[in-house]
Design a protein around this nucleic acid. Structure first.
Lengths: 198, 198, 198, 198
DNA sequence: GCGTAAGCGAGACGGTACGTCATGTCTTTCA
DNA sequence: TGAAAGACATGACGTACCGTCTCGCTTACGC
């Protein structure tokens, strides 16, 4: 007969303080060092207030990420697919280097063992992927993208390289990284048939 | 003046038992539930025997991964780049679905907060990337790959989609996944200029 | 600038419910398990209503004890000291076995660490002792009690054995316990000089 | 399948530190403020080390009391009952005023709600009562004590007044308190038949 | 071939964080 | 505006692992 609390009576100040404190901690000391105790202490809040509203620290960080996502516009659509993809992926690359990147990295970790985090992460990814696929569908209509390509796969080809380099930390990425990646995946890795005499 | 122990007198049985127990646990209950205590208990070993030879649970799992890697041959080279890439990436996709995949996932998590794990993971990745780049370099010589492409980026384009789908668990992958990905990234996402009349 | 509430507007029903609930809980689950939350829940009352009118759970139980005391007459005075003492101590022994006994035991515990409870308990004890001493003083006048005896000490000698057995729970007491105690302390523990031939 | 720890491997220093810290805390801040956390902190010990060996804070204090009891000799027997009783009760009165008194008071409180404490307290009391009754039995043989008196009751009459005054804190006791009490209970509260002309 | 020193299993140790509970205060809602 | 409801900050609870340590036991090397 466990009762869930009444959201109307919730203290909004505490809520903000908790989410902010969690994200700051994550950026400063890394996800592993974020503990409910530390969040509570930094937010000036009782531990119970965290446990009352969130099932885990990952859930708190999820709320932060969702908030960040709302601040960002959706997938851009200027009519030029190449430009739109560059805009979006460059924004993502910038996000990966920000505080939100640290939080997102932590959530991807948490999602490996915490079902709540996994669901939240899945939802965020899903949303991003759906938006991307909508833009790509339109691009197939305007003949900017191969119409025989599976869109999930296209998404993975476009975002995969960036995630690979960021998550696996194999090397630092140049600012223009995604510009080159996009050129390469759109043109293909095969040598051009005949470098046209021009 | 801390003394490191004498490797000659090391008990090889314990070593095997520990590494195996750690990997099994990882596959069965997930990386987060793998604790030094649990490894010691399952291996029938004292905790100190683990701490004596490994700095952390991640180091134990690293040893397992290195062992797995040794069992696998290096990057294949049949002279046919497309075939070799397919062989290698398909093997990787199969590995991701095996016990070693669970371990590798755990190590990628641990690498985010544990420097020892990060170094080990980096080394394993480095080795794989170097081997891949060597094969790709040769392919550039045989005109199977654009010679103007940055090889790190090519590696990320080839392996990125697989890691994206596996690590972020966005969807189950079909068996032939990498076959299609390779076709697409080699031909490019752009619509073919004129489907040549042939 | 803390405002104390207006007693005129007090809800008498809540008051009764709280005091009764507290005493019942004390008898049923013991003093340690009596919590303000439990009292409030059982009385169908908000916690604040308790904190508004009483400083602690002990204060609620004190009100119960004071009420019980009012229901009992004062120290009896029939002219026969022995009979009056027996009446009074037997009533006390009966009270110790009742719900009020559980409450009284709890208050004696609380008095060890709670100043409010200590003061209340002291007042109740004081009142009982003063009444007893008044009766004893009269008895000294009628030569029923040694006139050289310190009355505080006499009170302790009469009530001490009962409290000893009840509080320390060393053994169950027979119904006629106080009858024998009184006989013994009045006659003295020394063997009678010469059992008079009579 | 819970394992109880091996007493042979127990750290005697920690044990002493814990028992001493608990008793000191009890004397300084009172039983209610003694917490396992505070004991652990003051003893410089992990909480688990306390929980490993004792079921509750009361059990720690019990060990202290048992230790104190061992330091005290048993019931004295000089052949003079009055003198022996005075010796013993005076020692008890002194103990009530010492640190051990604070601990004993705490244990009597704990015994009201904690079965472990209750059993321990009962055992300590039992031992004291048995010793007292043995001495009293002998005294009945030497005609120093009424042979028709129930010895449990005699114990309660002798120790009851002291416990009454100490536990209920009704008044401060003079040094010679027990001397007067003993005189009174042995001679009886009744006025002497004929104040002998002498 | 025997003493000694190391590795071993076991597990107690001082700690940190966990998630739960009750406290006493404060705020919101309703009669 | 008093009372119900209940969210809040606080802090102790008892548990799980952490990484260090100290025990006896056994193993294997070197005199």
């Amino acid at each position: 007969m466990s009762r869930q609390p009444d959201p109307n009576r919730r203290n909004e100040q505490s809520r903000q303080a908790i989410v902010t404190a969690a994200a700051d901690l994550c950026a400063e000391v890394g996800f592993a060092a974020v503990t409910v105790e530390a969040i509570a202490a930094r937010a000036g809040v009782g531990k119970q207030t965290i446990y009352r509203w969130w099932p885990s620290k990952a859930a708190v960080l999820l709320e932060y990420m969702e908030r960040e996502r709302e601040r960002a516009a959706g997938f851009p659509d200027t009519g030029d697919l190449a430009a739109d993809l560059l805009t979006q992926t460059t924004a993502l690359q910038r996000l990966f280097d920000s505080d939100a990147g640290a939080v997102w990295r932590g959530l991807l970790i948490a999602a490996q063992s915490d079902d709540v985090a996994a669901d939240g992460v899945r939802a965020l990814l899903e949303q991003a992927i759906v938006e991307a696929k909508q833009r790509l569908t339109k691009a197939q209509g305007t003949d900017e993208l191969r119409s025989d390509a599976d869109l999930d796969m296209v998404v993975e080809i476009i975002f995969g390289p960036l995630y690979h380099a960021w998550l696996l930390r194999t090397r630092p990425l140049p600012k223009a990284y995604m510009s080159d990646v996009l050129k390469l995946v759109f043109e293909g890795l095969k040598p051009r048939d005949r470098p046209l005499i021009r």
